[in-house]
């Protein structure tokens, strides 16, 4: 969980507006779990006060390497995209409570949309002994990334895009819905934009399958001290604001109340 300086090993564009950065951190590589994130101080611009939370995309424990994948959406991610091999980053992490595998789980569906595909890859890498089917939604062909990585650990990879340039034309949750009507996993794990998560929650009403989702909320400290990152958790009549940075970012889908939440950029 601690703050340290890490060196950038590689930083390259892997799709339209999407970059993959590899850093070297013994601490993160050895201790991180899927769904956890690192909190990055943006260098070179002191006016960008807050750290940026970015999920861990995968780790290489032998070489202490950590991958992150990020979309350029604003000033902070723009600066990140210009950094080169050898430069240093001030990070905190790994932070948050990631995905977990309940006892007896054998078969999982993993669902990612847009930049939400990035953290999902770590699930497949870490828990590749499970029977995994992947559902990946992208805006279009030029926004797609790491599909080959998913093919390595998945029995099948379902693809969709908004414009039909890759896979099924339409929302990835429609594909998932179709598949669920013929075959059911023990557990679903998902990460993606709010509209995808909302569609997923709606679909799940029909099925009795546990589902973990990873949420995004604007953050401050990242360690539970400032209460700015909350999301409504509980049931309709009995809920509380819980901290996404420490209670989450991963929650059970059925306890997450997204009524008042609007779309973020990615």
């Amino acid at each position: 969980m601690y703050r340290h300086s890490v060196e950038i090993i590689e930083n390259k564009k892997i799709a339209s507006n999407i970059y993959k950065m590899t850093i070297i951190s013994n601490h993160v590589a050895q201790t991180a779990n899927p769904g956890q994130f690192i909190h990055i101080k943006i260098p070179y611009d002191e006016s960008l006060l807050l750290r940026r939370p970015i999920s861990i995309n995968g780790v290489n424990r032998d070489q202490n390497l950590v991958d992150i994948v990020y979309q350029v959406v604003g000033k902070g991610t723009k600066i990140l995209s210009h950094l080169v091999t050898g430069e240093k980053l001030d990070i905190l992490g790994p932070l948050g409570r990631g995905f977990w595998i309940p006892k007896g789980t054998k078969k999982i569906y993993i669902v990612g949309g847009g930049c939400g595909v990035a953290p999902i890859r770590f699930i497949g890498e870490r828990w590749n002994h499970l029977d995994i089917t992947s559902f990946l939604g992208f805006r279009g062909q030029s926004w797609a990334y790491q599909i080959d990585e998913f093919e390595k650990f998945s029995i099948k990879v379902f693809l969709s895009s908004d414009d039909g340039s890759i896979g099924f034309k339409g929302p990835i949750i429609s594909l998932l819905d179709k598949q669920l009507s013929i075959d059911k996993p023990d557990l679903i794990m998902a990460c993606g934009p709010i509209h995808m998560i909302k569609a997923l929650q709606k679909t799940l009403i029909k099925y009795d399958i546990p589902c973990q989702i990873s949420l995004e909320e604007r953050m401050g400290c990242g360690i539970g001290g400032c209460l700015v990152c909350t999301c409504a958790i509980g049931s309709k009549n009995n809920w509380n604001y819980k901290k996404v940075c420490t209670h989450g970012p991963v929650f059970w889908s059925e306890e997450v109340i997204l009524d008042g939440e609007f779309e973020t950029k990615c």
Binding site: L49, C229, Y241
Partner: peptide
Amino acid sequence: GNPPPRIVETPSGILNSVGLQ
């Protein structure tokens, strides 16, 4: 406390609206 989002970065500052949770 108040509904999210509760924080936004502004040039060299932050706006918060935690609302005493």
